[in-house]
Computed example of a mutant assay.
Amino acid sequence: MKPSPTKKPTTSPAAAVCPQGEHQKAVEQALTTLGGYGTVTVDGKQSAADCAAIKKFQKRFDIRPVNGKAGPLTHSVSQRLVKSKPSNCNAGNALTACIDLTNQTTWIMSGGKVIYGPTVTRTGMAGFTTPSGSYTIHDRQTKNWSTDWDVWLPLWQRIVEGKGFHTTTTYIHNSSIGSHGCVNLLPADSQKYWNTLKTGTAVKIFGRRPGT
Results as ranks from 00 to 15, higher is better:
109 M>N: 05
93 N>V: 05
75 H>M: 08
152 W>N: 11
143 K>G: 10
150 D>Q: 14
166 H>V: 08
118 P>D: 07
81 L>Q: 06
150 D>A: 12
141 Q>H: 11
172 I>V: 13
143 K>N: 15
174 N>D: 15
135 Y>S: 04
167 T>A: 14
77 V>C: 03
80 R>Q: 15
87 S>P: 03
135 Y>C: 03
93 N>D: 15
168 T>R: 02
181 G>N: 03
118 P>E: 03
82 V>Y: 11
175 S>D: 14
117 G>Q: 03
77 V>E: 08
143 K>F: 06
144 N>F: 13
87 S>K: 14
152 W>V: 07
160 V>T: 13
115 I>P: 11
121 T>A: 13
94 A>E: 15
76 S>T: 10
162 G>F: 08
180 H>S: 07
158 R>A: 13
141 Q>R: 14
102 T>P: 02
80 R>S: 14
109 M>Y: 02
107 W>K: 01
119 T>M: 13
103 N>D: 09
106 T>D: 11
167 T>L: 06
81 L>K: 04
104 Q>I: 05
147 T>W: 12
120 V>H: 05
177 I>Y: 01
102 T>M: 07
74 T>M: 04
137 I>L: 12
136 T>H: 12
176 S>T: 03
160 V>L: 12
181 G>Y: 03
129 T>N: 07
162 G>K: 09
129 T>W: 02
143 K>A: 14
123 T>I: 05
112 G>C: 00
135 Y>N: 07
161 E>Q: 12
87 S>C: 04
163 K>M: 15
108 I>Q: 05
91 A>S: 15
149 W>I: 01
151 V>M: 10
177 I>F: 03
112 G>Y: 08
135 Y>A: 07
178 G>E: 00
167 T>G: 09
143 K>T: 12
173 H>P: 10
129 T>V: 04
181 G>C: 01
160 V>G: 07
132 S>C: 08
111 G>T: 10
91 A>L: 07
117 G>T: 02
120 V>Q: 09
134 S>P: 03
156 W>M: 03
168 T>H: 06
92 G>L: 12
124 G>S: 01
132 S>M: 10
135 Y>T: 03
97 A>G: 13
97 A>H: 08
163 K>C: 12
75 H>P: 00
99 I>V: 15
108 I>G: 04
118 P>C: 06
79 Q>T: 06
121 T>R: 05
117 G>A: 09
156 W>T: 05
